[in-house]
């Protein structure tokens, strides 16, 4: 067993959090509140360093343009002041406006054009034919407009075409389920990937039951 007080501290925190799996208890709640306090303080400190380096230091050096983001940032906290909460909308509008524009500049090429280009492949093998069918049918699942119905229940557009889309969407749904199955499999892998290191810490670094790695 480890003699290092740092390891003991970390082990006590880990056990405190895991004790919740048995049932909620004071040991867990102490660790939980400690963790919550530390994590939010860490976020605030990292935020502060950004504000200091990018906002306040340039202001001190006479770069007055930095006043704009600093004011917008301060306005975010107006939401805590009754009657002045609407002021924080300016900051949110700024954040949302920039994010929306940045999204457009990146997504059109990477998310649409390149994806369509990637789907167009030479049909020189059975797998390539299957890929084409899978691509087309999976996309047809999202053809909501063609599949929509008028007020009297009639299908909008050509009925034969509609039937074709319906059949294609059925195959597409199968393809989507296969994909969701893959996501499910990898999700379990990811979750185990979080748990195993904790076991290695508790039974390796702390109790020395698991041999160490380099």
């Amino acid at each position: 067993m480890s003699n290092d007080p740092k390891i003991w501290l970390a082990a006590i925190m880990s056990l405190g959090i895991y004790s919740y799996l048995f049932k909620e208890n004071p040991f867990f709640r102490v660790c939980e509140h400690l963790y919550l306090g530390l994590s939010l303080a860490h976020l605030a400190v990292m935020g502060w360093t950004n504000v200091r380096d990018l906002g306040l230091t340039p202001l001190k050096n006479g770069q007055w343009s930095a006043l704009i983001p600093v004011v917008l940032g301060v306005l975010l906290f107006a939401r805590f002041i009754p009657g002045m909460a609407w002021l924080s909308r300016y900051s949110l509008a700024y954040l949302v406006g920039v994010a929306a524009a940045v999204t457009i500049t990146g997504v059109i090429d990477a998310g649409i054009i390149t994806q369509i280009r990637g789907a167009i492949i030479p049909l020189n093998s059975l797998n390539a034919v299957f890929t084409l069918i899978a691509n087309v049918t999976a996309i047809s699942v999202f053809f909501f407009i063609i599949g929509s119905r008028g007020e009297n229940g009639s299908v909008l557009g050509n009925k034969t075409f509609q039937k074709l889309i319906d059949k294609s969407a059925l195959v597409g749904r199968f393809i989507l389920m296969v994909s969701f199955g893959a996501v499910f499999g990898t999700t379990i892998m990811a979750r185990l990937g979080l748990f195993i290191p904790r076991l290695k810490f508790l039974f390796g670094d702390w109790i020395h039951l698991i041999p160490p790695v380099k």
Partner: peptide, 26 residues
Amino acid sequence: HLWLARHVWAKYQVPCISGNIALSTP
């Protein structure tokens, strides 16, 4: 990995590698 594809590869063609959690693989 999406951001790199959007803002680094698409705009500047700098090669990108993604190391991601298994969940993002599909």
